[in-house]
Simulated scan of single mutants.
Amino acid sequence: MQDQLKIALIQSDLVWENPKKNRKHLKEKMESISNVDLIVLPEMFSTGFTMNAKTVAETMDGKTVAWMKKQALKTNAAITGSMVITEDGKFYNRLLFVEPSGDIQIYDKRHTFTLAGEDKIYSIGNKKLIVDYKGWKLCPMVCYDLRFPVWARNTENYDVLLFVANWPKPRVFAWDTLLKARAIENMCYCVGVNRVGLDDEQNEYCGHSAAYDVLGNEITAFKPNREQIEIATLERNHINFYRNKLKFLSDKDSFTLV
């Protein structure tokens, strides 16, 4: 079990529906990163947030998944982000957590974004993922999931809540506020990685990627509207100290999801 977990957050622009160019661009960014445990990419990092699933969807045996495996091995770090996957005749906005060993764990986005019609194109997931990685328990989720605190509630005693996103500029205040709230209410680190730039649907993204500690203090220093990489160092002692001192999670309500 590691006392620290170092996470690289890549806040990047994305080329619309062009996996090859996005893979090349993100690979170049990864070449500047060393000695981290985890690299986090935005939601739909290979295409941008597109509803043209039939055009861009890949399989789990496709080029982008193979690329993630190769990059994880090369960087000796786990890599996570979501992409468009087709499986059994359905489309998924699927987050992949790829370890240097080549092991892959998946999470299919639970809350599809009805405002953009995502619910009409993509099938929803129904299973929360808890990744046990280097002695840390991580709970990865995707974008719109951030608005639903019951789904994200820390009933598994996870250490890190992680969101990858294409969260547009007009509602970025909600992004900032909810990331901080999820950290505070779950007494965990909360990490959010959002893209920047303009997509072909004329949606503007301004980043505001961030990592927050158990008390809701921001531990990164991203600037809006620009590509940037930040390294967040998470401390086991920080979690243990405040959970033992405050014990708020012991008072949480019991519930069952149906």
Rank of each mutant, 00 (worst) to 15 (best):
78 A>Q: 01
206 C>H: 09
117 G>P: 04
242 Y>P: 00
202 Q>E: 13
207 G>Y: 00
10 I>Q: 02
160 V>L: 08
243 R>I: 01
236 R>K: 07
3 D>Y: 03
102 G>F: 01
165 A>T: 12
240 N>E: 11
212 Y>V: 01
124 I>E: 15
63 K>P: 10
225 N>C: 05
246 L>G: 05
68 M>N: 02
129 L>Y: 01
218 E>S: 11
120 K>V: 08
24 K>D: 15
161 L>H: 12
117 G>C: 06
226 R>Y: 03
167 W>M: 09
149 P>L: 12
165 A>S: 15
187 M>E: 10
76 N>H: 09
240 N>T: 13
256 T>Q: 07
162 L>E: 03
45 F>G: 01
192 G>Q: 00
183 A>T: 01
187 M>A: 11
198 L>H: 07
68 M>C: 08
20 K>P: 05
144 Y>N: 14
83 M>I: 13
196 V>I: 06
220 T>V: 08
30 M>P: 04
68 M>K: 03
16 W>G: 00
239 I>P: 00
118 E>F: 14
79 I>Y: 07
118 E>P: 06
36 V>K: 10
182 R>S: 10
238 H>N: 12
59 T>E: 13
11 Q>A: 03
213 D>I: 03
173 F>P: 04
20 K>A: 15
92 Y>N: 14
189 Y>W: 04
24 K>H: 15
207 G>P: 00
